[in-house]
Amino acid sequence: MRLESVSKSYQHRGRTVAALDNASLEIPAGDFVAVVGPSGSGKSTLLLVLGGMLSPSTGKVHLNGHSLYELSPNQRAEVRRQKVGFVFQTFNLVPYLTALENVQIPLYLAGVDEPAQKERATALLERVGLGDRLDHKPPELSIGQQQRVALARVMANDPEIILADEPTGNLDPETGQQILDLLEDINREGRTIVMVTHDPRAAARAKRTLRLHEGRISSASNGVPAATRRDSNRTMM
């Protein structure tokens, strides 16, 4: 996954606000990157741009060697369906569906038949410790359980990349640790994780940390700068 001189600006009350400013970045397969920075520094924008949800004003985003934003919106949806999983701070579970049905959604969108959907979704919910909560709707689950359902949902289509936006932001420390444990497990399976967080303890669980300030990637710790990593790392996309 590679960002090439990506800028994203918004118009806000007649002013141009730069959410990302000439950001370049390469994330190799299997990496676990924490993105930190103050509020409004462009962290969530970076995540959405990486996930094909927000087209940059300038620059390119490459995924598997293809320029993501040269694809049509429906083709980008297809890429998300097959390769990318999102985890949200507010979990974004569908409130009127059970835990099992929530996990089935990506499988339905991928065209998997219903018995196979159920089998896979049940296995994933058991893996996150919710085998006894299959028929519970989100309001009937605790906050931590809801985030675990969201993690099971993100794993449904076996994505190569997981983009997590403050996954522990709404959780108590103990539940947050459980979620981070799960994310580490997922990363150990070879999946790439990019996690936006405000929490230094959560960031410390990542392999490296990127700091964003006013839309610019100002520093990277525990890792090698993008320019020098490009040749030495296997890129996933």
Binding site: G51, M53, P73, N74, A77, E78, R80, R81, Q82, F86, F88, N92, V94, I105, P106, L109, A110, R153, N157
Partner: peptide, 15 residues
């Protein structure tokens, strides 16, 4: 938000 979530999960405009 639900529509956005479905799109993030890979739902196209047709769905």
């Amino acid at each position: 938000r639900e529509i956005g979530t479905l799109m993030a999960l890979g739902a196209g405009s047709g769905v």
